[in-house]
Every structure is written in structure tokens, then in C-alpha cells.
């Protein structure tokens, strides 16, 4: 039963943002399994199930912030898209940056979409709900490679 729940990995160094995304996901009708990590190095360990993440799930979707300690979001994105086992996982860049260079570079590196983190709660919830609806309700995702 739990296996069929959509699995989301949030990569964000701001606990308040992680909490907001979790809240936003929690208020939707669709249940989901959510994990979060606070920097890019941890994100890669999680995705490759290294060390303390040996039992981590393989996410169906990664919600990735750009500005991260140690290894930034674009570096995580580049590593994911270079790894055969990870490149099929859709990555949503979720960032406050509206700089064209950030947006363009993210798509160049293979981001599946780029969503601005809104400043307003309702817009924030709407953005997260839209991401969830689109990726888990509308599109066909690749089968999980457990």
C-alpha cells in the first residue's frame, strides 16, 4: 500500500521552506511520502543510498532548491542527469531566483521544470499543489528503478 504512494524528495537548506512544502503537500487530497535533505552532498548520498541513507527510498520526484550549502542545486542537477540510474527522475527546480541565467542554466542541465517560490502563502501552496497535480496526477512517470 505504502509502495504506491508518490515519493518526493525535497532538497532545501531552509527548514522553514521544507516545512511549508510539507504542509502544502499535506493539505492536498493525495497522500505522499516525503523526505528532505538540507544540502547538495546529502542529496546525492540520499539518491545513491550511501551511508545513513542506505534505507532511503528512490523518489519519483525531486524538488530542488538552487542555493544550497556544500554542493549547490545546479551541481546536484548536473550529477543526477549524468547518472544513468538517476537521470530519469524528474527534477523540479523550486527557487526564489528569477535571474534568467539561473533559469536558462537549469534547463540546460536538464531540469524538468523551473518554478518560482512565491512569497505569498496561498501562491506557495498553489505552486506546490500544481507540481503535485502535474507530476502525480497528469503525466506518466517512468517505472521505479528500485
Amino acid at each position: 500500500m505504502t509502495k504506491s504512494l508518490p515519493r518526493v524528495l525535497i532538497v532545501d537548506d531552509n527548514p522553514a521552506d521544507v516545512c511549508l512544502v510539507r504542509e502544502a503537500l499535506a493539505v492536498t487530497e493525495r497522500e505522499s511520502e516525503v523526505s528532505s535533505v538540507g544540502d547538495g552532498v546529502e542529496a546525492m548520498s540520499f539518491l545513491t543510498r550511501k551511508e545513513k541513507f542506505a534505507d532511503a527510498f528512490c523518489p519519483d520526484l525531486v524538488i530542488l532548491d538552487l542555493n544550497l550549502p556544500r554542493k549547490d542545486g545546479q551541481a546536484v542537477l548536473a550529477s543526477m542527469k549524468a547518472a544513468p540510474a538517476l537521470r530519469k527522475i524528474p527534477v523540479v527546480i523550486f527557487s526564489t531566483s528569477q535571474l534568467p541565467k539561473d533559469i536558462v542554466r537549469s534547463y540546460e542541465l536538464g531540469a524538468n521544470c523551473y518554478v518560482r517560490k512565491p512569497g505569498n502563502l496561498n501562491e506557495f501552496f498553489y505552486a506546490v499543489r500544481s507540481i503535485e497535480d502535474f507530476w502525480f496526477g497528469f503525466v506518466n512517470l517512468p517505472p521505479r528503478g528500485e
Partner: peptide, 17 residues
């Protein structure tokens, strides 16, 4: 300034809601 303010805005709204 936008970043921390975003948190204040979002969470006061969440509190209100």
C-alpha cells in the same frame, strides 16, 4: 531582505489560516 521576509509572510498567513 526578501528571503527572510518570505518566511515571515508565509508563516503569519499560515497562522492566520
Amino acid at each position: 531582505l526578501q528571503e527572510p521576509l518570505r518566511m515571515v509572510t508565509a508563516y503569519t498567513q499560515l497562522l492566520a489560516e
